[in-house]
């Protein structure tokens, strides 16, 4: 449990868009341990999404060091970063972000295609695993409900058997019942050995996590077990 899969050291991120300068992260130190279920909570605008993007090599820090799978990402090429996103991490988003022109099954197979190993049987198993029934496999995203879409998105994140699942407000557009179902899927994945990082502003979900960090104004202000952090 001491082996970190993702390691952030004094990470700062500044967005400079002409007139406005936003400091999204102000020196974050964080180690994500192998197999843990980590939840990052905080109000909107606290830098949660930025943190998640940097953890998944989708964004790069303005300063500080990020090590993913033991590799310093500032030294990696576009190709190598893409490889990390393809094989080592799996993203799940609030807006599901499925590709509209692909069916549920094809959406799960898409990352496999990018990695050069399409496996339809595996894609079907993953969809069943996250609780999507077979009748939905050939439907397009706009024919599915929010909960169903998020299941497809989770199956897609699992497509290339990544070490880490990174989820950005995965329950943000779901009702309470569906939120619980989805968070249970993450809990189960974590129990099976996957490292899971979920970013959320919904404090009712933290009971499912192993560890919680609270982010405010780009800084970690609190860290501990769900019981310790609970207000």
């Amino acid at each position: 449990m001491t082996d970190p899969v993702i390691e952030l050291e004094n990470v700062r991120k500044v967005y400079d868009s002409g007139s406005t300068r936003v400091e999204a992260l102000k020196g974050v130190n964080l180690r994500v341990r192998r197999g843990e279920f980590l939840m990052v909570v905080g109000p909107s605008g606290s830098g949660k999404s930025t943190l998640l993007h940097i953890m998944g090599a989708l964004d790069t820090p303005t300063s500080g060091r990020v090590r993913i799978a033991g590799r310093e990402i500032s030294r990696l090429s576009d190709r190598e970063l893409a490889r990390i996103r393809s094989r080592y991490v799996g993203f799940v988003f609030q807006e599901f972000n499925l590709i509209e022109t692909l069916t549920a099954l094809e959406n799960v197979m898409f990352p496999m295609t990018l990695a050069g190993r399409e496996d339809e049987e595996l894609a079907k198993r993953l969809l069943l695993k996250v609780g999507l029934s077979e009748e939905h496999f050939d439907k397009f995203p706009n024919q599915l409900s929010g909960g169903e879409r998020q299941r497809v998105a989770i199956a897609r994140a699992l497509a290339n058997d990544p070490e880490v699942i990174l989820a950005d407000e995965p329950t943000g557009q779901l009702d309470t019942r569906n939120s619980r179902r989805i968070i249970k899927v993450f809990r189960r994945l974590s129990d099976e050995g996957k490292t899971v990082v979920v970013v959320t502003h919904d404090l009712s979900l933290i009971e499912w996590a192993d560890r919680v960090i609270v982010l405010r104004d780009g800084q970690i202000v609190e860290e501990g077990s769900p019981e310790e952090v609970s207000p």
């Binding site: 190709r79 490889r83 393809s86 898409f110």
Partner: peptide, 12 residues
């Protein structure tokens, strides 16, 4: 953005 997030290179 999604393509890139799930591992597409620029070339892809």
């Amino acid at each position: 953005g999604v393509m890139k997030a799930v591992g597409a290179t620029k070339a892809r």
